[in-house]
C-alpha cells in the first residue's frame, strides 16, 4: 500500500483571521485537496474488514473489497497522473473507481466524484461553494443513475444529509464537519429502513436493524476529510 507522510503537507492554503484572532481556512489548494483525498482513500481501504462485516449481514459481503480496490486505484492514479485542477482530483478518483471496481458501488461511488465535476469550470481552489456545487451535482447524477431516493437504504441516506449540511454552512471546515455528523446520523437512520435495491431488497424486513454499507462508506469519506483537516490545517 502506498504510504503517505501526511505531516509533510504544509498549510499553504488560504488563511484568514477572524475578529477573535482564530485562523480560518476558507479554501484548499490543489495539492491539499489531493492530499486530503489520498488520506480519505487510505481510511476507506483500512475500513475494508468493517465494511465487509456490515455488507455480509445484508448484502453479499463485497462492498469493502470493492471500495478498497477502487480507492487503491484512485491513490495510484492521483500519484501518477498530472493534476492541475480541483476538477482533476475529483475526475481521477471517480474514473478510477468506475474503471476498477465493477458492481453497483463502482458506478455509484465513481459518480459521487466524477458526476460533480462534469460541467464544472476549471477550479484551482476548493472552497465551500465549490465543494457544495460538486457534491450537489453528483448527488443529482447518482439519483438519476441509481433511481434511488432518501429512505431506500442506500448511500443517498447519508450523502444527501451531508450535502444539505454543506449547503447550510457558511464556512468550509465547519461545513465538512457538519456534513460528517449528518452523514453519521443518516447511517443510523438506515437501520430502520427496508431496502429497495440490490441484494438487500430480497431480505425484506430482515435487513431492519442493520446499517447500509454504502451509506457507511459515505460517512467514512466525510469523516476522514474532517480528520485530515483537523490534523493538517
Amino acid at each position: 500500500m502506498t504510504k503517505l507522510n501526511v505531516n509533510r503537507i504544509v498549510n499553504d492554503g488560504s488563511e484568514k483571521t477572524d475578529t477573535s484572532g482564530v485562523r480560518k481556512i476558507t479554501e484548499l489548494n490543489v495539492s491539499q485537496t489531493k492530499a486530503m483525498f489520498i488520506y480519505v482513500a487510505q481510511k476507506v481501504i483500512e475500513s475494508k474488514p468493517y465494511l465487509t462485516e456490515i455488507d455480509s449481514a445484508i448484502g453479499d459481503g463485497d462492498h469493502g473489497i470493492g471500495m478498497s480496490i477502487g480507492f487503491k486505484k484512485a491513490i495510484e492514479n492521483m500519484e501518477q497522473k498530472e493534476i492541475s485542477t480541483i476538477n482533476d482530483v475529483f475526475k481521477i478518483i471517480g474514473m478510477s473507481m468506475i474503471s476498477s471496481m465493477g458492481g453497483a458501488s463502482g458506478i455509484i461511488f465513481g459518480t459521487m466524484f466524477v458526476g460533480g465535476v462534469k460541467d464544472l469550470e476549471a477550479k484551482t481552489t476548493l472552497d465551500l461553494k465549490t465543494l457544495t456545487t460538486i457534491f450537489e451535482n453528483s448527488l443529482k447524477s447518482i439519483k438519476t443513475r441509481g433511481k434511488a431516493d432518501l429512505g431506500d437504504k442506500t448511500m443517498i441516506d447519508s450523502f444527501q444529509p451531508a450535502v444539505e449540511a454543506l449547503k447550510n454552512s457558511n464556512e468550509l471546515i465547519a461545513g465538512i464537519k457538519e456534513a460528517a455528523d449528518r452523514a453519521r446520523t443518516g447511517v443510523e437512520k438506515t437501520k430502520a429502513y427496508t431496502a429497495k435495491f440490490g441484494r438487500a431488497k430480497a431480505l425484506g424486513e430482515r435487513v431492519i436493524g442493520h446499517q447500509d454499507p454504502g451509506a457507511t462508506s459515505v460517512w467514512i469519506i466525510f469523516d476522514s476529510m474532517t480528520q485530515w483537516i483537523e490534523r493538517n490545517l
Binding site: 453479499d60 463485497d62 473489497i65 470493492g66 480496490i69 468506475i98 474503471s99 476498477s100 471496481m101 465493477g102 458492481g103 453497483a104 463502482g106 458506478i107
Partner: peptide, 12 residues
C-alpha cells in the same frame, strides 16, 4: 468478466 460476484466495469 467482473470480479467475484461483482458486475464487470463499463470499460470492460
Amino acid at each position: 468478466i467482473g470480479n467475484v460476484f461483482a458486475a464487470p466495469t463499463p470499460d470492460t
